[in-house]
């Protein structure tokens, strides 16, 4: 039996494109599960497939001292959803570097639930969105710190760039903390391209579209600096560059 189809009343599906999801729900109803054993490391790079609707739902359990690092580019032309449930035992480390890039009528969202169960866990989520047309880009990120998960260090850095009045960025970092000795930082901002930077680039010979693309590249590309595998880094950079040229 598959899980029931979600409704917008559920917080984590609030901004979803359920019409686009409906026909493909069967294959995504059950999130993939991944267990990283104590002390092990996992790194992955998610590059878009090019399908109109792209959904990735994954639940990751990090054992004591385990590490997971994900680099994600979310840029579906209709609906893209990256959903992560992460639990961290003592000393585990989770890092997410993700971008939503959208234009037209697309909806791209990143929904995370990071649960610190053990002590001294560290999670870091960096999300950048670039949205043109009437695109919607969302980040819903919940960080839970369980009772006893002392010295947790959780960080969320979320920034969105809107290229068009019709575009929308939703950003909802959420903290639920049941321990007293924790550090949880979150910052969120929504902005537009800086006019002075635009003029500087144009005065050097870049036409407006190229100048925009270059500035946006600067905004997004830092996310992939630490991809260990060179070929994978190239792949995600190339895909992001392509998406930015489309949007800019």
């Amino acid at each position: 039996m598959t899980a029931p189809f979600p409704t917008r009343k559920q917080e984590e599906w609030r901004y979803a494109d359920l019409d686009a999801l409906k026909p493909v729900w069967e294959q995504f109803a059950e999130p993939l599960t991944l267990t990283i054993g104590a002390g092990d490391s996992f790194e992955d790079v998610w590059v878009p497939t090019g399908d109109d609707v792209q959904v990735k739902r994954m639940s990751i359990a990090l054992g004591a001292g385990a590490k997971a690092r994900l680099f994600v580019l979310n840029t579906a032309s209709v609906y893209g959803r990256i959903e992560l449930q992460v639990s961290l035992e003592a000393d585990a480390n989770f890092e997410l570097f993700a971008a939503n890039i959208g234009d037209g009528q697309s909806t791209n969202e990143i929904v995370t639930n990071v649960r610190h169960i053990g002590e001294r866990g560290r999670s870091r989520q960096v999300v950048r969105s670039v949205l043109g047309g009437k695109a919607v880009g969302s980040y819903l990120g919940k960080v839970e710190v369980a009772r006893g998960a002392q010295q947790t260090d959780g960080e969320q850095s979320v920034k969105a760039m809107l290229l068009n009045r019709g575009a929308t960025a939703n950003c909802k970092p959420e903290l639920e903390i049941f321990a007293d000795d924790v550090k949880c930082a979150h910052g969120a901002s929504v902005g537009e391209l800086d006019e002075t930077q635009m003029f500087y680039a144009q005065s050097r010979g870049l036409d407006p579209a190229s100048a925009r693309a270059l500035l946006l590249e600067g905004f997004v590309m830092g996310l992939w600096d630490n991809v260990a595998d060179e070929a994978q880094r190239e792949a995600i950079c190339a895909a992001a560059r392509g998406a930015l040229r489309r949007v800019a």
């Binding site: 002075t196 930077q197 270059l214 500035l215 590249e217 905004f219 997004v220 830092g222």
Partner: peptide, 12 residues
């Protein structure tokens, strides 16, 4: 002169 974070001078 204007700063552009994330874009190397060489690429620019």
């Amino acid at each position: 002169p204007v700063e552009i974070p994330g874009v190397s001078s060489l690429q620019f």
